[in-house]
Design a binder for these strands. Structure first.
Lengths: 291, 291
DNA sequence: TCATGGGCATACCGAAAAGGTATCATAATT
DNA sequence: AATTATGATACCTTTTCGGTATGCCCATGA
């Protein structure tokens, strides 16, 4: 049984006689006769009653007409779906991001992408930066949003957001009420900072800003997540530079201060160059729209 | 796009490399390569990533795998359905019957048939005998249950039931209380009877029984339906012979009496010999079981 | 570094299938 | 009885399909 035979069969059932059906199918009558006869032989059943003024369906033919139409409909749908999948309009896309990004770019991006590509099964996962790197390498996720630093040879990236860092102080800190905080006044403070191997750009940005203010920051504690840094600052364990958008975390007891020439932090969208998932292009177009 | 290509595609997706897939498909690798390449060309999309240790699906391929499996599943189902339809296990079957038959054979037959052929869409219609004949001729119904008499050249029939006729009298009739009614005692009564052209066998049976009792019945009223005859007898318009099963009609004021050598009435299943609906055979087998 | 082997693509060939033309058989219609 | 419409059959040509032989690529290992 072939799809062509089913097409011929449906057309013949519609037309009611071989001649007109063949015409509609852009072929001549004899091959059509043979195809239908072949189909009948294969199925072991007469599908049409041949009368002097055309053909009519038998009971088996009526049943097949229902099923054949469904098969043909699905076959056509399959073709359309493949095209859609190639364009990234359907399929699956998974995004991993650090909790820090969750406060800045992720919400808007996710919302916009889901509107633009409603038929893509879009999954998002918060993950620690190191986990994100591994997940990306092993193909668990198609896209990652994180700080610069995991640019391997096979990864591509695109900047999503460049935002200033703010100083965060405990609520009861002596500097928490000054109007314009100078970095220099923090020279004796104990700093909470992300380990350099976790996010070199972030770490170096903070250290360099302090050095340009004339001191090397005293590292009180190395902490992996910006979110946790803010929490620990609120608990009185020191001060820190964190991305400005962390203010949205609404941590009680933490006070945010802007400074002159703040260190800048980048959020990068990264993916593997050999990942061919067409949905990635769609996501990139949404990113381009939004920046 | 052909069903074979979809089969090849699914098998390749399962096997993970051309060699094994070709083996499973009982063919060699090169034709399989060409078929897949052809499918990819037609769809305008790479479906597999060719790696040194086999193939993996692309995003478009993953989508197609879902759809292709569904298409193949339905195609196989269509084949099975055709076979079922040929055997009369699925399809449509419509039965027309006279109201008189509704009291005797129809209930049991319908019940049994629906159990034996649950996937057949079985429709039943009560109809007047003349309408039944026309409906049968024009193919509105596949089967009819009626009295003998509409045996045309193209119709086939099979006896379903042969039952004795009873005399029905008004409740207040002077003979309604005798223990054993003799036909002879009805010689002066006015008879309600079906017109001869509507059911010759029925009509003739009654007349002949009366004549063998020594009189020709006086036709008081010609009535089409046995049901109506009983009702009119109850209303005091005369007496009548009706099929014994009419007693089930529970008409108030009508009294049924059995007689010696009662006229017999046949219920026939009739259908057109050129009607090829395979469900008819199924119905016949149910009838055979029940008689 | 070069040989090796697994894996897919390509070239070419013969067989099978599909479509086209011409013609026939049948039944309804004029 | 001739005609017309319809499907089937015979025969031919083209296309498609599957098979064999072989080439290319890349990873692996001596």
């Amino acid at each position: 049984m072939t799809l062509n035979q089913l097409r011929y069969f449906c057309e013949l059932a519609d037309a009611g006689n071989f001649g007109r059906a063949a015409e509609r199918l852009h072929m001549t009558q004899p091959p059509l006769s043979r195809q239908i006869a072949g189909l009948e032989t294969e199925l072991g059943t007469k599908l049409f009653e041949r009368g002097p003024k055309g053909v009519t369906l038998t009971a088996a033919g009526r049943q097949l007409l229902i099923d054949a139409r469904e098969v043909l409909r699905l076959a056509a749908l399959a073709q359309r779906n493949v095209v859609a999948a190639r364009r990234g309009e359907t399929g699956q896309l998974s995004l991993g991001f650090t909790m820090c990004a969750a406060y800045s770019v992720v919400p808007a991006l996710t919302r916009r992408y889901k509107v633009a590509f409603p038929n893509v099964e879009f999954r998002v996962r918060e993950m620690m930066p190191v986990v994100l790197e591994r997940a990306l390498r092993e193909g668990e996720i198609d896209l990652g949003i994180s700080f610069p630093g995991l640019d391997g040879p096979d990864t591509m990236s695109r900047p999503l957001l460049r935002e200033p860092m703010s100083v965060v102080l405990p609520f009861n800190h002596k500097l928490s009420r000054v109007r314009r905080l100078k970095v220099r006044t923090l020279s004796t403070e104990s700093f909470l900072i992300v380990p350099r191997d976790q996010a070199p750009s972030l770490h170096d940005g903070v250290v360099q800003r302090c050095q340009s203010a004339g001191f090397t920051p005293k590292i009180g504690l190395e902490v992996y997540l910006q979110q946790t840094i803010v929490n620990l600052v609120a608990a009185g364990l020191g001060v820190a530079f964190v991305p400005g958008s962390m203010q949205k975390a609404q941590v009680k007891g933490a006070v945010f201060k802007t400074v002159d020439n703040p260190p800048m932090v980048d959020q990068l969208l990264v993916w593997q160059s050999m990942n061919t998932n067409p949905c990635i292009q769609g996501f990139l177009s949404v990113c381009a729209e939004l920046t």
